[in-house]
Design a protein around this nucleic acid. Sequence first.
RNA 1: GGGGUCGUGGGGUAGCCUGGACUAUCCUAUUGCGUUCGGGACGCAGUGACCUGAGUUCGAAUCUCAGCGACCCCA
Length: 475
Amino acid sequence: MEEKTDALPPIADFSAWYNEILRRAEIMDVRYPVKGLYVWYPFGFAIRKNTYNRLRALLDVDHQETLFPLLIPDHEFMKEAEHIKGFEEEVYWVTRGGLSELDVKLALRPTSETSIYPMYALWVRSHADLPLKLYQIVNTFRYETKHTRPLIRLREITSFKEAHTVHCTWEEAAAQVEEAVRLYTEFYTGLAVPVLISRRPDWDKFPGADYTIAVDTIMPDGKTLQIGTAHHLGTHFSKTFGITYEDLNGEQQLAYQTCYGISERCIASVISVHGDDTGLVLPPSVAPVQVAIIPIIIGKRRDEVLSAAEGLLTELKSMGIRAELDTRDMRPGAKYYHWELHGVPLRLELGPRDIDAGTIVAVDRFKVKRQISSAAEVGPLLDEIQETIRNRAEGAREAKIRLCYSIDEIRSAVQGGVAVASWCGDRACADQIEAETDAALLGSDLRGPYNERLLDTGCIVCKKNGTAALIGRSY
RNA sequence: GGGGUCGUGGGGUAGCCUGGACUAUCCUAUUGCGUUCGGGACGCAGUGACCUGAGUUCGAAUCUCAGCGACCCCA
């Protein structure tokens, strides 16, 4: 197999690979003439659709979907001081209607707390209204000044799933944060994307939150990508917006709130975590095309091959499998490259030899070839591929995590992965770690077996008691 | 936030330093017809580009400035 001039950059050159794959696999068109805004190609949008359908299904169990306005009046947006401080540098403002100046400036939501909570103040009357669990999937706007990146750092986030819940007690809200973490873990398991869950340091939590639990994944270059957050809002916003309920004794009480969100970064993670030098690798759970059927057309048996292929297509579709028959006038090899680039998990080849033998050639995305005899074998095969992809990603994650017992070890670990080390929780110790390792302290209380594995060594700086902290460079 | 590189058909490039024969190179993609088809086909005939604006000049893809946009490195 000779080298091709139009080869994809290797995934080891992650930045170049990422930019190329978005265009070649028809996920995003980055040529829209405004910085930080991008266009979904239909194929990319189909991945989004499959992914968000899964997210909806998870939430719909005990949340309700809703939709709030994009524009937020100045006076509502400005109500919560801490929240404003967190966002004021990056809010877009609508100041004119046609030719006339607006009396009340309108903010394009950078997130929807201040859009939703004035209404929550009206909706929540009594303890019987609680818990309230709503979510919406919307676009949000942030005037990013740093380097924008498709799906990762955007000026218009097109696919922000944000849930906002209201509860009677702090503990109930805390339990909801845990429930959110559970939902997100399940969501990412379905995408075969391994995650790291930790508690963001106080200085890095959501503006207006008691605390923030973050979901990160590790990209091929070892940098982390935050792909989900869950915030305990305490009574910060209920105080400001007057969200109170009447309790059993007939007294007004402040409500406790949470919010949690996932954006199209989840798509970025699927693309990046699974991709390889050949192109995209999509788990069957979200692949727009799960099976590509390639007819091998030879001269006079053309019609025979095509009708067999169509029969196979119909059969697969009737089993609920997303299959496509590729009848384009190209050589079969060209089609193999095309579908591999697009991450299709399984390819079925059907030619005269197979028809004569009553078989089908099945080749998975990792180029493992099998001979199958019926469409019924395809479903189980897809499940197996899903599992293979998950294991592969899990292995890659493990290889990028290093337990560290010294600053030097951290410094080297974060060159191509992440470090896990004990940290006491003090800002001063974190500052020292960050200054000496050229990385960020991303979170404490890292979930998983890490506390035990670190064997109570104490904070890596001051030796006081600590928890497993996640340290790395991030997007 | 600071620094750097760059903008030429849909994508990737040559040309720019040293302004004029540029009717702008090559690869890829793409349209039509034909022959093909078990790992990126071939032939013939086509289509398609100098980021925007201002300036210098007899003359600008090429020089100057600004804007917009892209990428890389550092904080």
